[in-house]
């Protein structure tokens, strides 16, 4: 078990969640995520996970994809970002998915798929455990 790391971000859609991380760099919810299955194009699932996306890009329809993920019970448990833009904020708000941004770039560089992440309502993000990384 490695020491816990904690970061304080900006709670754009406040809420608490806990889950395993899925890490991506720039995400266009429209085009990169299948709203029916919650699968990314590379086959990883974001359903029930903590989606760590450093930044977003692409279509303004992305908000509807987040809503559709929720409707299909495939939404991430929370989304954490370095910088969120309005497209993601409104989608997360309408879908009720916790969203935290203003997190340091270093978090996204060190976070690995499968790391256990806790998101707290005040925007605190804790990384609890790094399975396979000396744990």
């Amino acid at each position: 078990m490695s020491p816990e790391a904690a970061y304080k971000g900006r709670p754009l859609v406040p809420g608490s969640a806990r889950g395993r991380a899925v890490v991506v760099d720039a995400i266009s919810f429209y085009g990169d995520v299948d709203p029916e299955t919650g699968l990314l194009r590379d086959g990883r699932s974001i359903a029930g996970r903590i989606l760590a996306a450093r930044r977003s890009r692409g279509s303004t329809v992305g908000s509807y994809v987040i809503m559709a993920l929720k409707y299909n019970s495939k939404a991430p448990a929370a989304i954490i970002m370095e910088r969120a833009e309005p497209i993601v904020v409104v989608g997360a708000y309408l879908a009720g998915v916790p969203l935290v941004d203003s997190l340091p770039r270093g978090l996204f560089e060190s976070l690995r798929d499968g790391d256990e992440v806790v998101v707290e309502a005040d925007g605190t993000v804790r990384i609890l455990r790094r399975p396979g990384a000396g744990g």
Binding site: Y30, P35, T60, V61, Y64, M67, A68, Y71, N72
Partner: peptide
């Protein structure tokens, strides 16, 4: 308004 195609926004939209 964007998100008008049924394929894009689906049943939820």
């Amino acid at each position: 308004v964007s998100g008008v195609s049924y394929g894009n926004i689906g049943e939820a939209g």
